[in-house]
Design a protein around this nucleic acid. Structure first.
Ligand SMILES: [Mn+2]
Ligand SMILES: [Mn+2]
Ligand SMILES: [Zn+2]
Ligand SMILES: [Zn+2]
Lengths: 158, 158
DNA sequence: GATCCAATTGAAAATGAATGTCTTTGTCAT
DNA sequence: ATGACAAAGACATTCATTTTCAATTGGATC
């Protein structure tokens, strides 16, 4: 989906909720929509402040909360204490493999796993809402250099 | 495994590391070993303070860190902002389903899912270290009462 | 364009989990 | 009993996120 279309969805959501459009919010949202990484709030704030230096911390937090609420952003916690956000993926749900050495995040989707999850849930009498599957390990590069070049852990990167 | 045996393992670990035995640590560990829930630090502290009212926050944190380090405890983050700990399971690894309404945690193990994960990881050139699979949804009870009796969200419970 | 009012902003303070600091206390080998 | 050093407990600190609140802004209406 194009950033413009996402902006339209946001506009609709804002209108439906009786909220108001603001230049700050629009700019933060647009900046995020043009991102294709799993971006942290700090990174996003930094990016936004390049053009709008006096934008507030809280505004970015509030905007990302809003985008998450209306389904345009997904929040992820990969265990480094920082919430990351990614754009709603075109091709449906996916899960992640995270390199514990360099922080590289790789996405994958596996219908068999998803199906098995459904089965498990059904057997246990639950009604599933969402799930979280994260694999942690060493990426190819970091496996090769194993031992040397320790802990950069540059998760993401704007 | 019996709490006594776990205590022996802890004692060995302490000795091997050149640490010292203390009554507080032993009591916290013992209390934890006799727990069979996914207990939060607050809950554990509360439990411990019933018999030892002046025990410190930090001591419980430090003890659980130690137990995690020597493999007797597993730390879990189920997204409510509190780290929970569970005893090392007898029967190997398992994953969790968490009820988003009442907080009930149900455990499950599925060898097929685990095998598929291995496959995915190998294909992507990663060397897996650990993983996190959490399913979130409504338990049988909460599905039944759907709509009424909102949000107690008493995850765990000491 | 002026007016009104609720939504929004940004700065600063507050929160809350977890960790660090520091002084006192406890453990244990000698 | 003594000394060396780990550990406890009280308290401060960190860090991400949330809340507070006075000032500003959007946008609907006149
Ligand atoms: Mn992703
Ligand atoms: Mn468990
Ligand atoms: Zn890597
Ligand atoms: Zn439930």
């Amino acid at each position: 989906m194009q950033p413009e279309n996402k902006m339209d969805i946001l506009k609709s959501y804002i209108e439906a909720k009786g909220l108001k459009s603001t230049t700050q919010r629009d700019f933060i949202a647009d900046t995020f929509f043009r991102t294709n990484t799993h971006i942290s709030l700090d990174e996003l704030l930094k990016k936004v402040r390049r053009k709008t230096p006096n934008i507030g911390y809280a505004t970015v937090y509030r905007t990302m909360k809003l985008l998450t609420e209306c389904g345009l952003a997904i929040s992820r916690q990969f265990g480094d204490g920082q919430t990351r956000y990614e754009n709603l993926p075109e091709d449906g749900h996916h899960d992640h493999i995270i390199c514990t050495e360099c922080g590289k995040i790789t996405e994958f989707a596996n219908v068999e796993i998803e199906a098995l999850q459904e089965q498990v849930v059904r057997r246990l009498g639950f009604h599933i809402q969402y799930h979280k599957l994260e694999l942690y390990g060493l990426c190819r590069d970091c496996s090769a250099h194993a031992g040397r070049a320790p802990g950069m852990h540059a998760l993401g990167g704007g």
